[in-house]
Design a protein around this nucleic acid. Structure first.
Lengths: 172, 172
DNA sequence: TATTGTTATACTCTATAACTATA
DNA sequence: TATAGTTATAGAGTATAACAATA
């Protein structure tokens, strides 16, 4: 394999790339043949666009996910949130505390299990969640301008088969 | 919306889930309608299966990616690796140092730019990379048993359009 | 004996500022 | 003035062990 930066082989064809040592594009063909690599790159690219949309609500992606699950599942327990979002219990504690201190969620005694607590959104929490959900849905549309609705549906269906087929959630 | 854990509405139909407070499945329908959410879950599920395959070679996922790019692009510079894999330069330094100390890669003076250094795999590095690449390719096959070759190709093509269409690599 | 929620803690990953040598 | 490589450091994100209260 030839050195990518050896000038003795340069400019066939002449690529209109600016000067500097790091100019030519690297070969990543093997990595690009992997579903895992492409899924990770795609996820990071979308999340990078979602982040600034959630900033006005002072929510990170995980916090939005937790708030959304609680809003859509009133009375859900911590363990159920952990199972749904693949979050470890110790890491959820701080998230819930922060959301509760902001007055977005609150806890009530569980009707049948005195160890557990039911989680609920407050009125303010429901408002914030609705607005943030609209913003997230809108930015996904904008982030994927080249995908038709059918292609998006196909993509999502294939991705779900990837992580539902394998043992998702077993390793943490 | 009804409380998910309110026993007064329980068991219609009776779900065969074991006892405890966190038993019923939570509604995550909105999150599951997002490409970003599904891509992240899929990526994490696959990476969780790739990790143990790389353990015999004492490589983490990022380290394998760097080693692979260097192996396939002899003489590549640090900045080019950063651009190809969307890694920040300060975070690459430690990765390269570790790979160099293990004798898997080495640096040589860049032919035309005295600021830069060309990266190369050693013979040992090339051996490790080849073996690890085979292991990774094999585990991807095993991790996606329900996807045909055509479906895998479709999935990869759609994912690439997601992160190549948006401004991938611009935010970091 | 198992589960819920929790604390404490450690380790990895990612991000920013600032410096030097060179272009 | 800009770029390549580097240091130091800060902040997210993720992981395990262990505990009290309750099932």
């Amino acid at each position: 394999m030839r050195d990518v930066n050896d000038p003795s082989h340069a400019s066939i064809p002449p690529s209109g790339i600016p000067p500097g040592a790091g100019s030519t594009a690297a070969d990543t063909s093997f990595l690009e043949s992997l579903v895992g690599y492409n899924a990770r790159r795609a996820a990071l690219a979308i999340i990078a666009q979602v982040l600034p949309e959630l900033q006005p609500y002072d929510l990170r992606v995980v916090e939005f996910s937790v708030l959304t699950v609680v809003a859509h599942n009133p009375g859900i327990t911590s363990r159920q949130v952990c199972a749904a979002l693949d979050i470890l219990p110790p890491n959820l504690v701080g998230l819930l505390r922060k959301l509760e201190q902001r007055g977005l969620i609150h806890k009530r005694a569980h009707p049948s299990d005195r160890r557990a607590q039911g989680l609920y959104v407050t009125d303010a929490g429901a408002q914030v969640q609705r607005a943030a959900q609209h913003a997230v849905a809108a930015v996904e549309q904008r982030a994927l301008p080249h995908l038709s609705a059918a292609e998006r549906a196909t993509l999502i269906a294939l991705l779900r088969r990837v992580y539902q087929g394998s043992g998702a959630g077993t390793t943490r």
